[in-house]
Nucleic acid binder design. Structure first.
Lengths: 228, 228
DNA sequence: TAGATTGTTAATCGATTAACAATC
DNA sequence: TAGATTGTTAATCGATTAACAATC
């Protein structure tokens, strides 16, 4: 009954929440007020029951026959994710990916504010990317401690990821968003989210290979393709 | 028995394969030849049985008591993912993220080669990023058709993602790696992999909130923090 | 009211984990 | 040989889907 009990929600459901949020915001911008699970499901090509189950973890309640009140739903998702409060973060590694993350305005809408960037490469130190100056990596721990920064983003090569994580832990950082393709050793109480882009590519590669097989098999089974 | 029957493997398992691959390559570089599931599991902090199950989808077989022969294992994973052949791809949208993807050398190791980039913004057309010149978006369909490009990468804002997908489909592209935060309408036979960075951030945000709750609860239950 | 939609409770499905025989 | 590790078959766990009573 009470919204937001100690529900955590299944992780797959949590992963889907930002997708709902995007859609709801676009509905909201086009002046819409109410939406049903059926309609959301159609747009996202999933099942209505899954939509209702997913939204339930935020504590929101809809109205039978009517659906959900969009502003309340947006607020419920944002609150559940903690995205209506800003979380400060340090980013380490201002190569291609790091610079892209630093320059991405959209994180603001996700409550994430990168307040400082670091790099081990002296030639990058002093650069200003986005609004942020790149600082030498050895200043990270101390600064994180003094600023009580809760989150760190790792965008360095695999080889240096662990040492960066160590520095973050030393600085009291509690959550690490890790874009380096290797697993990190951190003490209990520090949470890590690995974001290996190669995972998505792996799935896509396998799917592509499969559709090709199907296509070829179909080809040998028919007299001829309906050629062009 | 025969390696690579029509096994597809569970998607979560496929997502983990690149992680194994990274680790195995680093073992390989340090001159190692054999590895057991136990050892892989330790490094990645997962269960040995999961490692064996995951590796089994590639068709590889290990030897009792000894483990797996690393070069064969690397080859099996690469073959399963199709990463030992190069897949050509077009990338659309050379903003922050698009440029980062374009500049990322590591995709070569994943069999992905971005052979052309496109943008709707005239001021970006003609720029050279990585080795690739940025072309006007209206050339995409025709060029994709002539070059038989199988894969497209979408790195444009949500609003223009669908029209880019349409152009890709028109050009005969069969697999779309979509970094725009919205779902795409594509015909049957075209596969889409959505890569919404916000999903990972959502999970991390919820985990962080949870650890904080635990910390605070623990705080109220103890006489005092072991201060500093 | 009648009907559409929610939210709960149960059933199914798939992935992970456990147990253990086979084997080098 | 003895023992460690694989790979198979079974059990558990969790997420998705289905069925349906509650309700605006």
């Amino acid at each position: 009954m009470t919204p937001e009990k100690n529900k955590i929600g299944s992780l797959p459901a949590v992963r889907r929440l930002p997708t709902y949020l995007h859609l709801l915001r676009s509905f909201s911008e086009s002046g819409r007020e109410m939406v049903s699970s059926t309609h959301i499901a159609e747009k996202l090509k999933i099942e209505p029951i899954q939509v209702r189950k997913d939204l339930a973890i935020t504590g929101i309640e809809g109205k039978p026959k009517v659906g959900y009140y969009i502003p309340a739903l947006i607020d419920a998702i944002e609150t559940f994710l903690g995205w209506n409060n800003t979380t400060d973060a340090f980013l380490v590694g201002v190569g291609n990916l790091g610079s892209a993350l630093l320059g991405y305005e959209g994180f603001r809408k996700h409550g994430l504010k990168i307040v400082a960037a670091f790099d081990a490469d002296d030639s990058r130190v002093g650069q200003v990317i986005g609004d942020v100056e790149v600082l030498p990596i050895h200043k990270l721990s101390d600064l994180a401690m003094r600023m009580h920064v809760p989150m760190g983003v790792i965008a360095v090569p695999a080889e240096s990821a662990q040492s960066v994580a160590d520095a973050m832990v030393l600085g009291g950082i509690q959550a690490i968003w890790n874009f380096a393709p290797r697993s990190l050793d951190v003490p209990d109480g520090v949470v890590v989210q690995n974001e290996d882009l190669a995972s998505g590519l792996a799935v896509l590669s396998v799917k592509l290979a499969r559709t090709r097989e199907i296509r070829e098999t179909a080809g040998t089974m028919l007299p001829a393709g309906n050629g062009g």
